[in-house]
Simulated assay, not measured.
Amino acid sequence: MAETIQYKCPCCGGRLEFDSGLQKMKCPYCDTTFDVETLEGYDDALKQDAADDMHWDAAQQPWDDVQMGVYTCKSCGGELVCDESTAATACPFCGNPIVLTGRLSGDLKPDYVIPFKLDKKAAEAALRNHMKGKRLLPNLFRSENRISEVKGVYVPFWLFDADADAHIRYHATRIRTWSDRDYDYTETQHYAILRSGDLSFTHVPVDGSSRMPNDLMESIEPFDFSSAVDFQTAYLSGYLADRYDVNADDSIGRANERVKKSTESVFASTVVGYHTVVPESTSVRLANGRVHYALYPVWLLNTVWNGKTFSFAMNGQTGKFVGDLPVDKGKKWRWFGLVSGIAAAAAYGLVCLWQLLH
């Protein structure tokens, strides 16, 4: 059996969970709270716990290509089967939060974690607020909407630091027009513009989970790294957590793409006073590259309507919320007709006004 860890309240024996509001570990049964730092030594003690070794020498069937693991809940004795990317979960039998410590040791141990600042109620309220003012949202979706799943997940992120030496060449134009009694004139001046400079990037994030779409995770950025703390497993109690299944080397391409786009955006903002600006050559060279591994807090919400699942995500630190909503086709066409009618009426009014003036 693989190793698990659960935090027990020394007062009543209940399970301890990380409370995002208090920023402390709290027992939901006796309301006793503990600073996370006080559990640092408790981590080491829990890892020394050993289970009975009473196995029979019986043949075991091999696992499939997808590596799974069997874990024993220390509260009820139930067995959990988890895939290789699960680092924290809850027992399906008794509901106790479980941290799979073997998934977070050695090279798999994160350097940092940003603790949850917002709780489940905040995520549910954010979804309701997300639906406000949406004219094309079906009425039944708004009134009958039931959230089928809300889960707080620590998502693995690779954080890239680097110094960039960049050189970009632009082709720009300035255009001047004038007229005389006979002709209209256009003068176009062409410029080759060079920009060079050094930039430093810190904590450029790339999510390390293949189960999390890059565009979804980037949509809820930024995360404020100033709130990051050294990793301790206690922060994971009461939440789900994935360990990375996309390694740092495979994430470099995405990090380079983000660094290059940011560099181009910064340099382009300095090229002003021209009618057109087109980048012709870009060279970005990186040095002093460093990589860190961190867990970032994300609330994931799913709701089902008309047999279709709609997924949403919220930054568990800042509250930034994203997600697609269904569109009522009837409302869509009525709204399109209303807008078209207003535009037609305005055009007719202008025509009438022109006729009156002429």
Rank of each mutant, 00 (worst) to 15 (best):
V206G: 02
M217R: 00
D207Y: 14
E40S: 12
G77I: 08
L286V: 04
I168D: 05
D64I: 13
V113L: 04
S179Y: 12
Q189C: 08
G289D: 04
D249M: 11
E187W: 11
R290D: 07
V155S: 04
S311P: 11
G69I: 09
Q317H: 13
I175V: 13
A313H: 04
H292A: 09
G341S: 06
D165Q: 14
K134H: 09
K151I: 01
G14W: 05
L140Y: 07
A50F: 07
S209W: 14
T188K: 13
W354Q: 11
E187R: 15
A313K: 06
V36R: 06
D328L: 07
Y235N: 03
S340G: 14
T38Q: 12
L127D: 00
E221I: 03
D324V: 12
F34G: 05
D65S: 11
G307Q: 07
A58D: 05
H171V: 14
T4H: 01
G253R: 10
P92Y: 01
E84A: 14
G273P: 09
R174S: 14
L127A: 02
Y183R: 15
A234C: 11
G95Y: 00
F336I: 12
A45W: 10
I175H: 06
C11A: 13
Y235V: 08
Y296D: 06
D53F: 14
G21N: 09
V66L: 14
F141R: 09
K24P: 00
N302F: 12
L140W: 04
E84Y: 14
A166Y: 11
T276D: 15
V36W: 03
L16D: 11
I175F: 07
G21I: 07
A268C: 00
R243T: 10
H130M: 06
L118H: 01
G77M: 10
P326G: 12
W354E: 11
R142V: 10
L300V: 13
D119Y: 06
N315P: 06
P62M: 03
A268K: 09
H358S: 01
T33E: 11
A228T: 00
I147P: 06
E218R: 03
C9I: 04
V99L: 03
F18N: 03
K47Y: 01
D43Q: 05
A126K: 07
A346L: 04
A234K: 04
R146A: 08
L137Y: 02
A344K: 00
